[in-house]
Amino acid sequence: MGGPMAGDPLQWAEGALRRYWSEDGLTDVVVGLFLVAYGWLFEQGQQHDAAWAKVLLIALVLVVALRMRAVIHALKMRWVYPRAGYARPRALPRETRLKRSAWVLAAALLVVGLLIALDLPSRVVCGLTGALMTFLWAWIGWRNGTARHFFLAAVSGGWVLWHLLRPGVVCDLVALFILTGLLEIALGLFAFGRFLRKYPQAQGGAP
């Protein structure tokens, strides 16, 4: 990628910020922990009909939706910014944020409504969810230029294809969540270790 003179300088700077944001791998560790916890609680709620698991599942989703950014920010304040520098991404205008949230909510409701209305077989639901996860990993990898997300997309896509193309094998979404979650934690920790070696603790603090 060229410097700011090579193309649109703002796009160049935004790309650099995105790569910086994902370089340390901490976001992956947090998202991986969420996926594992989500899969485990979902399993508890389904298999053992545990009410506490269902309550915790809703609480987990709410915490992630409302506080995940703050948690990642706190981790970065401790481990990342003192080493490689601090940058706070620009907040979108309130109107844009509300519009975007409304679109995501509407799309989620539409998908859930369609799944309920069409009463699709569990294999189809599993396949669609796996395809969505695969697409999301690949999109994140393309956007941030991170090979680990392409690897997760390949694992997720391969896992779904393997389970769908083999008759008699149950396509278990919980296993997919836990598998990709654990992989993401491992890859995130690997990226974090590499980040710590690349940016050793600065002597004398920030200039």
């Binding site: 700011p4 003179m5 300088p9 700077a13 935004e14 910086y20 520098g85 601090y86 940058a87």
Partner: peptide, 25 residues
């Protein structure tokens, strides 16, 4: 000036940044 364009573009993409981030970017 290329150096100043890089600084301004970097700052335009963020709300705020510290000296160390600007050095790296």
């Amino acid at each position: 000036v290329p150096a100043r364009l890089a600084i301004v573009a970097t700052l335009a993409a963020v709300e705020e940044a510290d000296f160390r981030y600007l050095l790296r970017a």
